[in-house]
């Protein structure tokens, strides 16, 4: 493949649960001619979580824009919709940037004819694409993602006009009735259309919904998983393995990695509780 451009790839913070998704994005960008320079994590936080402390949010915005400017890449490609919104609505209004921002979906869509020849491996799957109403006004993801997925041999997307509130499931966390309504609709549609899997666009939704596998409702993927699989890339999806393992996840992660995060007390506090958390049960919706 011909790499024609170097771009900063801002993957965000919370997708660090999913190394397979980050690496899948980097591979896909390379396939469309872009060498990604990945940046993310707390040192590149957008500060969108700091509504109660805008002074801290301001400092984080300044620091992150400065660091990105230092990369001297004409284009910055964002993965996370929260980061993209924060950069679009606040950070770039407060601090001058020397780059243009695009969302990853936009870049893949814009260069889809370069991506198409890589998608050779059939993925025979009838899927329910999980979509939200938000963010779509800024970037037409609800139109672009189905077109990207339709390039995969074997993928069939079931028709569905429902759009969940918000732009991601994680924002619905404090609103269990909204989350339950979304889950009810998703499960009913999956059943009615004989879909074999639910596919998310964002990692935030993937994190909140992948427990549906453990509950026996449906298989769950992120769209990057399917594009990567069709391009012949198979990486372990550890987060899903841990989620499915429940209390046994600790053995899968292993003592070395648990030691690196501060040992069992840190593991129990930071990771175990999240892995044991599942979507609202069918009988409680």
């Amino acid at each position: 493949m011909d790499v024609t451009e170097k771009a900063t790839f801002w993957y965000g913070c919370n997708v660090l649960r999913h190394g397979d998704i980050i690496r899948g994005c980097i591979d896909l960008l390379r396939f469309v001619g872009i060498e990604a320079v990945p940046v993310g994590g707390p040192n590149y936080c957008c500060g969108s979580i700091k509504d109660a402390n805008p002074v801290a949010g301001d400092g984080m915005a300044k620091r992150t824009v400065e660091r990105m400017n230092q990369k001297n890449n004409r284009r910055m490609i964002a993965w996370c919709p929260s980061c993209h919104l924060q950069m679009h609505n606040f950070m770039s209004k407060g601090y001058e940037t020397n780059f243009e921002m695009d969302f990853l979906v936009e870049v893949l869509f814009e260069r889809r004819e370069l991506l198409r020849p890589w998608l050779k491996v059939p993925v025979p799957l009838r899927i329910f694409l999980h979509r939200h109403v938000g963010f779509n006004q800024l970037v037409g993801i609800n139109r672009m993602v189905p077109e990207l997925l339709a390039m995969i041999p074997g993928i069939e997307i079931v028709p569905d006009s429902y759009r969940a509130p918000s732009y991601m499931c994680h924002a619905l966390g404090p609103h269990p009735t909204a989350m339950a309504a979304m889950l009810r609709h998703s499960e009913q549609t999956i059943h009615a259309t004989s879909a074999e899997a639910l596919v998310t666009i964002y990692h935030q939704c993937y994190r909140d919904l992948c427990g549906l596998e453990r509950q026996g409702v449906t298989k769950v993927f992120n769209y990057i998983h399917l594009l990567a699989r069709s391009a012949g890339i198979e990486r372990p999806n550890e987060y899903m393995e841990w989620k499915n393992a429940g209390p046994e996840a600790e053995q899968l992660i292993g003592p070395e990695r648990i030691g690196s995060m501060g040992g069992k007390p840190a593991f129990d506090r930071l990771i175990k509780a999240e892995l044991l958390k599942l979507p609202i049960r069918r009988d409680q919706r």
Binding site: G40, G41, I253
Partner: peptide
Amino acid sequence: RIRAFARTQLTESEQKEWM
């Protein structure tokens, strides 16, 4: 929490270069 997950997913050199 993010740093703990990152330690499970990225190599040490990736953590230095990507974060």
